[in-house]
Design a protein around this nucleic acid. Structure first.
Length: 264
DNA sequence: CGAGATGTTCGGCT
DNA sequence: AAGCCGAACATCTC
């Protein structure tokens, strides 16, 4: 599930534990999500400290703990964060569980494509600091997008939108949503985009992110009814704009939906 | 039972 | 040689 807006939603789930101590940590150390991570340090570093705050950037989250502990989480394809009541017994896919007195913070991830990092130190860790400018930020300019498109000239624009170094937080459904809104055919090569189209794409990216975070990110609800989002999962979805049957194809290995009638 | 799923990474090819 | 493609990862659901 997790793209920008869903990540924001999941991050807030753990707000329930803000300011409170972690009394016990349970984790499945051998699981893939902990690859490259010192799970012993994670376990001992989080037991005792309080959860002080969190941030999200693109698809990454960073949770800050007292005693200089930093927990980084990427939800991959099927990761989720949630809160359980005291007494909850973790199940098979609950790979990281932080027990607090009033509630239990749970990270579950059946497919294990997610990733967990742990770091101790005064400042934010290296794996957090290399993030590209957020789409919602002033630094995300049309000019940046234009030069990126020039560099990726022979790449399909759909694939370009999935590049986290340029569009942090954009995933498969958001990329399709952005292209649909900008009326651009996802198969077009980046080099073929005219300056005006790049500008439209840039504005669509900003709008889709803003509205998605305001709906899904804020409450876990749905984006506006007229969005492609509601049609793209159906086998026979229709374009919300003109009612035409949507196209479906794999572009860059990812299922892509678009309207041949209004995206050129 | 096979196919596909909202992500990233790696190895190989051009 | 940078950049692109497809496969692999692990599990569940349709």
């Amino acid at each position: 599930m997790p793209e920008l807006a869903e990540v924001e939603f999941f991050r807030k789930q753990w707000d329930a534990g803000l300011g409170q101590k972690v009394e016990r940590v349970e984790l499945h150390a051998a699981k893939r999500i902990f690859r490259g991570t010192d799970t012993k340090a994670l376990k001992s570093g989080l037991k005792g400290p309080r959860l002080l705050g969190s941030r999200a950037h693109g698809k990454r989250m960073l949770f800050r703990f007292s005693s200089a502990g930093w927990l980084g989480i990427h939800l991959g394809m099927s990761g989720r964060l949630r809160v359980e009541r005291p007494g909850y017994v973790p199940s098979r896919h609950d790979h990281l569980v932080l027990f607090q007195r009033k509630q239990i913070l749970v990270l579950s991830d059946p497919r294990l494509f997610g990733r967990v990092h742990f770091h101790r130190g005064k400042s934010t860790p290296w794996w957090w600091n290399d993030a590209a400018p957020a789409i919602a930020s002033k630094e995300f300019t049309a000019e940046r997008v234009a030069s990126f498109m020039r560099r990726r000239s022979r790449l399909a624009v759909k694939s370009a939108l999935l590049d986290q170094q340029m569009f942090p937080g954009v995933g498969n459904w958001m990329a399709d949503e952005i292209l649909w809104r900008a009326r651009i055919d996802p198969r077009r090569l980046c080099a073929s985009l005219k300056p005006k189209e790049i500008r439209t794409l840039w504005r669509s990216a900003q709008l889709v992110c803003e509205v998605a975070v305001g709906s899904i990110g804020a409450s876990g609800g749905d984006p506006p009814a007229k969005w492609l989002f509601h049609q793209r999962w159906k086998s026979k979805g229709n374009c919300p704009r003109d009612g035409e049957l949507l196209e479906k194809a794999a572009i860059g290995g990812r299922t892509t939906r678009w309207c041949a009638a209004c995206q050129h």
